[in-house]
């Protein structure tokens, strides 16, 4: 053992990468991460297998309208971020970590980047799977160059939940509470949002909370009409305004930059009544708003998570 007389100050990048590496190794070795990956694959398989069961053999828009899905967003957020900060406190590993020459901001950013890389890798694999599956089941796919846009959108959607989980974990220092708070919020918003969407004549408030938002119909001439049991659906026409559909909406803006989305209210107690037109919005506005809302949530909750972590003391 030789003493280093003159120590070199590590660069910002060296410290950042060390933390990222530390966190990445943790993420990919988590059993529940493998579980979430398997779950997402199952959901993806259902997405391209289910229409095929209805004898739909052609859908060239499958790959660009594919999404990992809102349940997967929450699950991936939970498995990658649930004990990222709180778990360190619970296990006591925070003590040796915070006594290394890395600032808490650096630890936070490194962990966040590792979560991003982990989710990016997982989603990329799932998207590749969806493209291959889409081609096999539905034939040649259009506009595959837009798939990365859908993937980025899904990551933004997921990061709302990552931020919420991190904030809950960082404030409470309890992984189980972080999980329950995030998943409870997801369920509450999903149920509440669904009810408001069905019952209210003015559901536009849903545009500003994480979730599915309001469902509308894109007025496009393109797309593929699919008829199932005498009902014709255009593969591109369905639009959701919420933060769960950022990827899909970005793709639709690129494909139909000037198109509008109409929002209707259907009386669920009287299905025979014609749907009532509530309002119409441009596709561009919908996509931009959902991205804006997502970034506000991400910024606010990440700030809470960072601030609680930065100010915390290590008692145990």
């Amino acid at each position: 053992m030789e003493r280093q007389i003159e120590k070199q100050r590590p660069t910002w990048l060296q410290r950042f990468w060390a933390i990222t590496r530390y966190e990445m190794l943790w993420n990919i070795r988590k059993k529940r991460f493998i579980g979430a990956l398997i779950f997402a694959f199952v959901l993806a398989t259902i997405q391209f297998a289910l229409p095929a069961l209805f004898n739909i053999s052609e859908n060239p828009y499958f790959a660009i309208t594919f999404s990992v899905g809102n349940l997967s967003f929450v699950l991936f957020a939970i498995v990658t971020a649930m004990n990222s900060i709180s778990g360190e406190y619970e296990s006591g590993t925070i003590v040796p970590l915070l006594t290394k020459p890395v600032s808490r901001t650096m630890v936070f950013l490194g962990k966040l980047f590792a979560i991003f890389l982990t989710i990016l890798t997982a989603y990329a694999v799932i998207y590749i799977y969806s493209i291959v599956g889409g081609i096999v089941v539905y034939g040649p796919q259009y506009n595959l160059q837009l798939v990365p846009l859908a993937l980025i959108g899904d990551i933004i959607s997921t990061f709302i939940w990552v931020a919420i989980v991190l904030a809950a974990g960082s404030v409470t220092k309890n992984s189980l509470l972080a999980f329950l708070m995030a998943f409870g919020l997801f369920i509450a918003l999903a149920i509440g949002g669904g009810l408001i969407s069905q019952l209210s004549d003015n559901p536009s408030g849903l545009n500003y909370i994480p979730g599915s938002g309001v469902s509308g119909t894109l007025n496009v001439s393109g797309g593929q009409n699919i008829t199932v049991s005498n009902i014709t659906v255009n593969t591109l026409s369905s639009v959701s305004t919420g933060t769960d559909s950022i990827g899909n909406n970005m793709v639709k803006v690129v494909l139909y930059p000037t198109s509008n989305v109409s929002f209707y209210h259907r009386d669920i107690f009287n299905f025979t009544a014609p749907p009532k037109l509530l309002f119409a919005e441009s596709m561009g506005l919908i996509a931009l708003r959902s991205i804006g809302v997502a970034f506000v949530y991400i910024a606010v909750f990440l700030f809470i998570a960072w601030y609680a972590f930065k100010r915390s003391q290590v008692f145990e």
């Binding site: 590590p10 060296q14 410290r15 590496r21 530390y22 006591g92 590993t93 006594t99 290394k100 020459p101």
Partner: peptide
């Protein structure tokens, strides 16, 4: 400039001993 060993230290269970020292070494530059 400080080396610190906490009372009853706990380290990430998912890391190998050598990996732990390697990652901490990277943090020291």
């Amino acid at each position: 400039g400080i080396g610190y060993m906490p009372e009853l230290p706990r380290f990430p269970k998912h890391l190998k001993g050598k990996e732990l020292l390697d990652i901490y070494g990277r943090m020291y530059g």
